[in-house]
């Protein structure tokens, strides 16, 4: 299965299973790194093609626009912060420090709509939204096997109120930091809304983990550094799961 991960051929659940094992297996880490390098080298075979005139100027202009958008060094308001993150991660619905009641209602409606679309499996855009961060996460992991200790991925169990372990969460440092949730024995199927609580007590929305049967995986960028994550909550009506990294 390492070859599937190295070539991005592994799907979400398989990918989570592989990562779960690889995290604790130095031999597989080495194998995965070598296979990934081999797979990436194949990209050199794609024929070169000159892009349309002015391509480089358009790229530089885009980067300059994004740089300019970063100029306000300190986000003055939650609205500014959300707008900036949405600009940087246009397909990601967050972060959202605990919003006003109206925003919560709107968010719940959006979450519900997304869950329906996901369950129906008919939203190509949703597939894009779900698979892109997942793939980027795996890619980041593939390329992040050789890291300093303080940059190493962290993992933590997902537990029920009764202390039963129902899955694991993996936190990957980087820019941005990433989170991968893998539930293997979820109490109920459906969408679990994830929230990240920082060491400073601020709560951010962190996406939804869709569970089919008892199994579900989801990958999202984190709105804060891994070191700032105090806990993660996963909730759906009547159920609350906790993670303490």
């Amino acid at each position: 299965m390492l070859a599937e991960l190295a070539t991005t051929a592994a799907t979400g659940h398989d990918r989570a299973q592989i990562l779960w094992h690889v995290l604790d297996c130095p031999a597989c880490q080495r194998d995965l790194a070598e296979l990934a390098r081999t797979a990436d080298e194949l990209l050199l075979l794609a024929p070169q093609q000159r892009p349309p005139e002015g391509f480089d100027l358009r790229v530089v202009r885009r980067i300059q626009d994004l740089t300019a958008a970063r100029v306000p060094q300190r986000p003055a308001t939650a609205r500014w912060r959300r707008a900036t993150i949405r600009r940087l991660f246009p397909r990601w619905d967050g972060p959202a420090p605990v919003p006003a009641r109206t925003l919560r209602a709107a968010r719940r409606a959006l979450v519900g709509a997304m869950a329906l679309i996901l369950a129906a499996g008919i939203g190509a855009g949703t597939v894009l939204w779900r698979t892109a961060p997942d793939r980027q996460l795996a890619d980041q992991y593939r390329h992040g096997l050789v890291v300093d200790d303080d940059q190493a991925p962290k993992s933590a169990p997902v537990t029920t109120d009764a202390g039963l372990v129902v899955g694991h969460v993996y936190l990957f440092p980087g820019t941005p930091a990433w989170i991968l949730v893998a539930l293997t024995a979820a109490p109920q199927p459906g969408g679990y809304t994830m929230s990240v609580v920082t060491t400073g007590g601020v709560r951010y929305g962190a996406g939804i983990c869709q569970v089919s049967g008892q199994v579900g995986t989801a990958g999202y960028p984190l709105p804060v550094a891994v070191s700032q994550v105090a806990s993660i909550e996963m909730t759906r009506p009547g159920i609350r799961l906790d993670v303490r990294p």
């Binding site: 799907t11 194949l42 990209l43």
Partner: peptide
């Protein structure tokens, strides 16, 4: 290998 590594198809899609 090419479909997976270059085109990004999953094993199921292949």
């Amino acid at each position: 290998v090419v479909l997976a590594a270059i085109y990004g198809l999953t094993a199921r899609e292949i």
